[in-house]
């Protein structure tokens, strides 16, 4: 068994006095696509924030390629090859579309992704490259957010609710692009409210409930009942 690319060991997270995660254990291997599902407020975003360094934890609680990174800063973690597509897109409003992508690539990591590769994936962005990022539609903004994360050529990419607030057609076009992204061995964690979508794109799934893992298993053969139990905490 090769070393996991990411493992969370009894991960805890707090906002002031409020505890959001209670000892989450998780493991994923290179090339895997992991889905994380769970009700609103379950702690999905908090988990991704912990991995990407936006929340600091004890070092050993987050281990990436054998290195404890829980206590590192977000910029140090980014340099190690973890990228986050944050919930709500969070583009830089005073940067143009192209500048948003370029700043994503400022780490200059080696890999297939470049400005032209992103423009090939999302051709509409090429037309709008000089626009202020605020002038785009929600779906286009999401493409910029994804492109911005890809520009760093990460080994592990974290998606936080990329379909949130988008029209179904747009969601479909974004998810259609996903195999092209994770195809070449990039590992991905996908947080998604739409359970069937989450199951269809992932290899394995974790369900969070109130800050704890309530279910874990291969996406292909997990039962609906098990999921609704894990999701809502009822039989």
């Amino acid at each position: 068994m090769p070393e996991p690319i990411l493992s969370l060991n009894r991960l805890e997270a707090h906002y002031g006095d409020f505890q959001a995660l209670y000892g989450v254990d998780l493991e994923m291997h290179e090339g895997e696509v992991l889905a994380i599902i769970g009700a609103n407020g379950a702690g999905k975003t908090t988990l991704l924030r912990s991995v990407s360094g936006l929340m600091s934890n004890a070092a050993a609680q987050v281990v990436y390629c054998g290195t404890p990174i829980g206590a590192l800063r977000a910029d140090e973690i980014a340099a190690l090859g973890i990228a986050l597509v944050p919930e709500g897109r969070q583009l830089f409003p005073s940067l143009s579309v192209e500048e948003n992508l370029l700043i994503g690539g400022r780490l200059n990591r080696e890999g297939p992704w470049s400005l032209s590769a992103v423009f090939e994936l999302f051709p509409v962005l090429k037309e709008r490259r000089a626009y202020p990022s605020t002038a785009l539609s929600g779906g286009q903004q999401q493409m910029v957010a994804i492109g911005r994360a890809l520009m760093s050529n990460p080994d592990l990419i974290l998606f936080d609710e990329i379909s949130l607030g988008l029209a179904p057609v747009i969601i479909k076009s974004i998810y259609d692009a996903l195999p092209g992204i994770v195809g070449d061995g990039m590992s991905a964690v996908i947080v998604e409210q739409d359970i069937s979508k989450a199951l269809s794109v992932s290899d394995r799934v974790y369900c969070l409930m109130e800050g704890r893992v309530s279910l874990e298993g291969p996406s292909a053969n997990i039962s609906r009942e098990a999921i609704s139990r894990a999701y809502f905490g009822v039989a």
Binding site: L54, R73, A74, D75, A78, A83, P86, Q90, L95, S152
Partner: peptide
């Protein structure tokens, strides 16, 4: 200046 947190994700040490 826009968003310190997200800028850190780009590898910027603020």
């Amino acid at each position: 200046s826009d968003n310190q947190e997200i800028a850190q994700l780009m590898g910027l040490n603020k």
